[in-house]
């Protein structure tokens, strides 16, 4: 049994958290910006729901992971 005991560590190395947070939040905010630009500039008839949903989904994935890493980097271990 003794040899099968192995320490568990985080799936992502902890020193990466701040970098990951900044990168993913930056990408997320850029995609969010493009989402809102599209919403504001395209007219109602030309707007495609699929494009809106994909942009929103991509933005939320980046913002979600970005904010998770921001929490972890700032010491709020969820």
């Amino acid at each position: 049994m003794a040899q099968s005991v192995k320490p568990i560590s985080s799936p992502v190395p902890e020193p990466w958290y701040p970098t990951l947070a900044v990168l993913m939040l930056a990408v997320g905010l850029i995609v969010t910006a493009s989402f809102f630009i599209y919403e504001a500039t395209s007219s109602k008839k030309n707007r495609s729901l699929a494009k809106e949903l994909t942009t929103g989904a991509v933005a939320s994935v980046f913002l979600g992971f970005g904010s998770l890493f921001l929490l972890l980097a700032s010491g709020v271990y969820v």
């Binding site: 809102f36 729901l49 929103g56 989904a57 933005a59 939320s60 913002l63 992971f65 904010s67 969820v78």
Partner: peptide, 18 residues
């Protein structure tokens, strides 16, 4: 589970905007 919750939170926000 935690990142998924954050992601779905943001996604609901986008859905609301749409």
């Amino acid at each position: 589970q935690e990142p998924l919750m954050l992601i779905s939170g943001f996604f609901f926000f986008f859905i609301a905007c749409i």
